[in-house]
Design a protein around this nucleic acid. Sequence first.
DNA 1: CCCAAGACCTGGCGGC
DNA 2: TGCCGCCAGGTCTTGG
Length: 271
Amino acid sequence: MPELPEVETTLRGITPFVRGKVIVRVDVRNGNLRWPVPADISFYTQGKRVEAISRRAKYLLFKLPQGHLMIHLGMSGRLRIVQDDTPVEKHDHVDFCLDSGNRLRFTDPRRFGSVLWIAGDPGRHKLLKGLGPEPFDPGLDGEYLYHRSRGKTVPIKSFLMDSRVLVGVGNIYANEALFKSGIAPTRTAGRISLASYQKLLDNVRVVLQRAIEAGGTTLRDFVDGNGKPGYFQQQLNVYGRGGKACMECGAILREIRLGQRATVYCTRCQR
DNA sequence: CCCAAGACCTGGCGGC
DNA sequence: TGCCGCCAGGTCTTGG
């Protein structure tokens, strides 16, 4: 589930139940994630109060007195609030038990996600230090993307999904933003105009913002611990629609693979 | 440095 | 019903 909107929705959903609470115990049932859950995670987190929660790219950061707990959801991860007596299911790998009687439960069938401890400045952590700007960073503009792309021979879709350039644009929304912008995903990043990058950034923001708003309607699910993320209900123009008719012109949408990822576009609307 | 491909892992689906 | 291959929202790591 996690693209940026899902991570942002998760952040908003769990914050009221976690901020200000004390972690009384950590249950690690399977610490074999993308990286092993640190053996001393309890040492750093047990008995500590969560002072704040924030997001950087698709990483969630929980500020504790002596450092940050950092969680990434990978491809299939979920974080939700459950009760102490909520039954544990197969892929419920880690619980952060809170003094409120709730637990923050990390579930991840594919285990591409991660639960890490950062002792120092998160911005200097190996996984965060090379990241590009956030899509909604007010200082970000089309010129930045234009300049970063000069000399690059990668397809624009790969460029857009490169976290060193810009964070938060995953496969679904890269496809959608390129469609809205009328840009073929195969085009060489270095040969795209400034005006096109300006339009593309606008559409990245529109698509992400709408998805966040859609996700925001299902916040209740995080409390109940059932239900699904909201973005499936959202209207997708191209993602998952290869071989079907373009919603704008009716032409058959083409599906290819770019950088190993499913890529769908309209050869008539996108040039 | 740049770019492409491989790696990690489980589950669901379509086809036979 | 069962087995097989392929696909899936990410991104770090390796190889050329």
